[in-house]
Design a protein around this nucleic acid. Structure first.
Length: 433
RNA sequence: GGUCAGUUGGCCGAGCGGUUAGGCAGAGGUCUGCAAAACCUCGUACAGCAGUUCGAAUCUGCUACUGACCUCCA
């Protein structure tokens, strides 16, 4: 391995530039990724961050870092809408189905694990639940109150965005400013408790029918959604850590609020590198809960959905996702999935062939294995450029097939390099079916 | 309306100032008998207009269109 194979450049949403990754406390790396809200089955869109950050997790470990990967489960606090008075997603589901909220959360957590694991995604190091950190969340609310960046109103506590903004810029991650937002914010119903429509809930008093509730000095209630990630990342990764990932749709308001909460309590943000994966689209539109245009992973695997021409293997889906760069949108279509399926099969066939190749005394001139290998590592190091990496692998496929045809010869050392390359792809990209 | 992305060959999808990305489909070929499979070879595309430059898909400006966020969403 030479120098470039030991580095990593990451596109940091905060600076809008690719930056060389430097661990804060090498050899340790802290990685936090926003996980699912467990009130429904995981769909194709959920697989993107899971796979993207799985690649990152594996590559960091390959580089020799000891990575603590924290991915949370949101099982409380996530409201139906952001008027900060809607129903809790889990609680609503529980009431409708006459279940304990934790039954709902457990059921969908299990389902999430089952389907995401099929995509060959490694488990995170820690998977904390928001409901298991209510006390810590209350402490953070109190800290922010003590520092004067929040106020209590009728049993609820809100973050004071305009006040915060006088000392720290609010909107640095998503490129917004408070003046513009104030001019453009829609007036939502039922916001009389808030001083400004930009303020967000840190603690909400529970209405009588709200079944998920905890006692606090302010009221019987529940924590605001944005709180959990600030609290759990701090608890498990420290007040400052390396990488925070998540979907682009979480950039605002979720991650922006997280930064504000951290800064309001500790005086500084916690995260060094912010990474955001783009969305999977369907007919050019974001696949998501709100539009109801999603296809669950279960349906993808079974083919049981009107839009699916067939069932797709988990490995096909993983390959399909990795054929696009994580920061680009990726459009779902049967044609694209079928193309991925065939390409992936060809790649795997070459790997099978490669295992049977017998080495010769020396390599033919065309067998430039070291160069291909180097380009693969350069690609992954360049902000996880998996599409380039895959295109290099297809160059390797051509070499492998020529070797099998006896058109080229390969020396033992080159053969080992080639096998290692496919094997490390197996480890970093898990292309093996 | 505000902010930010994007528009690449039949389809998907990289590239971000000069060199063939890659995959799928398609065409041609090889495999001592046909077909299939497999493998090999081939494609000169970058929304439009103007500009900068010796040179632009890549930089600048304008126009058109699409999308994301601004409300829950990975």
């Amino acid at each position: 391995m030479n120098a470039s194979s030991n580095s990593l450049f990451i596109y940091n949403t905060l600076s809008r530039k690719k930056e060389k990754f430097e661990a804060l406390h090498a050899p340790f790396v802290g990685l936090y990724v926003c996980g699912p809200t467990v009130y429904g089955d995981p769909h194709l869109g959920h697989s993107r961050p899971a796979i993207t950050f799985d690649i990152l997790f594996r590559y960091l470990k390959y580089l020799g870092y000891k990575v603590r990967y924290v991915r949370n489960i949101t099982d409380v606090g996530h409201l139906e809408n952001d008027e900060d008075q809607g129903d809790d997603k889990i609680g609503k589901k529980a009431r409708l189905d006459q279940l304990e909220p934790m039954e709902v959360a457990q059921y969908y957590t299990n389902r999430y694990h089952f389907f995401i694991n099929k995509l060959n995604v490694q488990d995170p190091s820690i998977e904390p639940h928001a409901s298991g950190h209510i006390l810590e969340q209350q402490h953070l609310v109190q800290e922010i109150l003590d520092n004067g960046f929040a106020y209590e109103s009728q049993g609820s506590v809100y973050f004071d965005v305009p006040k915060y903004n006088t000392q720290h810029p609010y909107g640095i991650l998503s490129g917004r400013n408070v003046e513009d937002m104030q001019a453009n914010t829609r007036s939502l119903a039922g916001q009389d408790e808030k001083r400004s429509p930009l303020d967000f809930a840190l603690w909400k008093k529970a209405s009588p029918e709200h079944i998920m509730r905890w006692p606090s000095k302010w009221s019987d209630g529940f924590p605001g959604w944005h709180l959990e990630c600030s609290v759990m990342s701090r608890k498990y990764l420290g007040a400052e850590f390396d990488i925070h990932g998540g979907g682009m749709d979480l950039q605002f308001p979720h991650h922006e609020c997280e930064i504000a909460q951290n800064t309001a309590s500790k005086g500084h943000s916690a995260v060094r590198y912010w990474m955001h994966n783009n969305m999977i689209t369907i007919n050019g539109q974001k696949m998501g809960k709100s539009l109801g245009n999603f296809i669950t992973l279960e349906q993808m695997f079974s083919g049981d959905h009107p839009l699916l021409a067939q069932a797709y293997n988990p490995s096909t889906i993983r390959f399909f996702i990795l054929q696009a760069h994580y920061r680009s949108t990726l459009d779902f279509s049967n044609e694209a999935l079928q193309a991925a399926e065939k390409g992936f099969k060809r790649l795997m066939a070459a790997w099978t062939t490669l295992k049977k190749i017998v080495p010769a005394a020396q390599s033919s001139d065309e067998v430039k294995v070291a160069e291909i290998s180097q380009r693969c590592f350069d690609a992954i190091a360049d902000d996880l450029n998996t599409p380039i990496l895959i295109s290099e692998l297809f160059d390797a496929v051509r070499v492998v097939n020529s070797l099998a045809d006896g058109k080229m010869q390969i020396a033992a050392s080159d053969l080992e390099t080639l096998r290692k390359l496919f094997r490390s792809e197996e480890h970093t990209s898990e292309l093996q079916s």
